[in-house]
């Protein structure tokens, strides 16, 4: 396990003889990766050329390639006001919260599902927790509205009076929304994510548990010292991947669920929604492209750093 990658000695074979051997050893594997690699080249890398749009004053009559270069002017709107601080803060804080809570909730669900003896019910629960993920964000927005509407909402009309509390104007009070959005996000994602961890748990070699049981370990001890450590690689990779997208957010959650309510913007505005709103009428593809580049570059740097740290701890868990 401690052995580091021995790749370099294969990478650039010194003699033709060795290259020949190398092809014979890995030729099939290379053929196997070809479809995926070609697909990514065409579907993902080729369009990356379009990043130039972020630095262009797009004029369709001239064509995109011939449009004038304008340096970083398209990026300006992202940093002009103190909105830049607010949207960046919101995006990062929400994402960090989500990354942590999603993993905790999903792992809990997965571990508990795996503990259940009644397989039929376990499967039933598993299907049910997936449901929220299947409902479109706009509809979730409707459903949340049916809870929180001032005039017809279940909260204001039924629950708050029952508790002897007065009406709350949910869609203008910023203080509730960090919690509401977090709850909705966990509600929506946990069941979906738990599938991954469940697959990881199911994949653990049962011999470990059998040995532990013979040694008299309790279930809880087994979970703590077998299950969790063995799914750590999966948790790590999921976290790393999420960090890469830390400047991106679930647009539907932040735009549709608060119903685009203006007074809530200080706590609901994230980079994606800010860009969307700014450019709705301007329709400037240069500016939206600039926002995408900014998000990607920051995510990239963060992931390089995190990956470096992970590699220091355990190189097998690192992304690359």
């Amino acid at each position: 396990m401690e052995q580091t990658v021995d790749a370099p000695k294969y990478a650039f074979p010194k003699s033709t003889l060795r290259r020949f051997r190398w092809i014979r050893r890995y030729g099939v594997l290379i053929l196997m990766i070809l479809p995926g690699v070609i697909y990514l080249l065409i579907n993902n890398y080729l369009p990356m050329l379009g990043i130039i749009i972020a630095f262009k004053d797009v004029n369709y009559a001239k064509g995109i390639l011939q449009s004038d270069w304008i340096g970083f002017k398209n990026f300006e709107f992202l940093f002009r006001t103190n909105d830049a601080y607010i949207i960046t803060r919101n995006t990062i804080l929400y994402n960090i919260t989500f990354i942590v809570l999603h993993v905790i909730a999903a792992v809990t669900l997965a571990v508990l599902l795996n503990e259940l003896k009644n397989r039929f019910l376990a499967r039933f629960y598993q299907s049910v927790v997936l449901l929220p993920y299947l409902i479109s964000a706009v509809i979730i927005g409707y459903l949340v509205f049916s809870l929180l509407s001032v005039e017809t909402g279940i909260m204001n009309k039924k629950i708050l009076p029952m508790l002897g509390l007065g009406e709350i104007s949910w869609y203008t009070e910023t203080k509730y929304w960090p919690y509401i959005l977090t709850m909705v996000s966990v509600w929506k994602t946990a069941g979906h994510l738990c599938v991954i961890f469940l697959a990881a748990i199911v994949g653990i070699d049962k011999e470990y548990f059998e040995a532990a049981t013979i040694d008299g370990a309790s279930r809880w001890q087994q979970i703590r010292s077998i299950t969790i450590p063995l799914i750590t690689p999966v948790i790590t990779i999921m976290t790393l991947l999420a960090i890469g997208r830390i400047f991106h957010s679930d647009f539907g959650l932040f735009y549709q669920v608060p119903l685009d309510s203006g007074p809530l913007l200080p706590v609901t505005n994230v980079i994606d929604t800010y860009v969307y709103r700014s450019l709705l009428t301007l329709g400037d593809i240069g500016m939206s492209s600039a926002a995408g580049v900014y998000q990607s570059v920051v995510g990239f740097l963060l992931v390089l750093i995190s990956n470096y740290i992970v590699r220091k701890i355990n190189s097998d868990n690192a992304l690359f």
């Binding site: 002017k73 709107f77 309510s261 700014s278 450019l279």
Partner: peptide, 28 residues
């Protein structure tokens, strides 16, 4: 033609989104 000031327009649009509807419907 808002091109010369488009980054200002983008910023002001966001400010308007935050306040305008709330004020103009009386809820703020």
């Amino acid at each position: 033609d808002s091109t010369p000031v488009k980054s200002e327009v983008a910023s002001v649009t966001n400010v308007m989104n935050q306040y305008r509807l709330g004020l103009e419907t009386g809820s703020l």
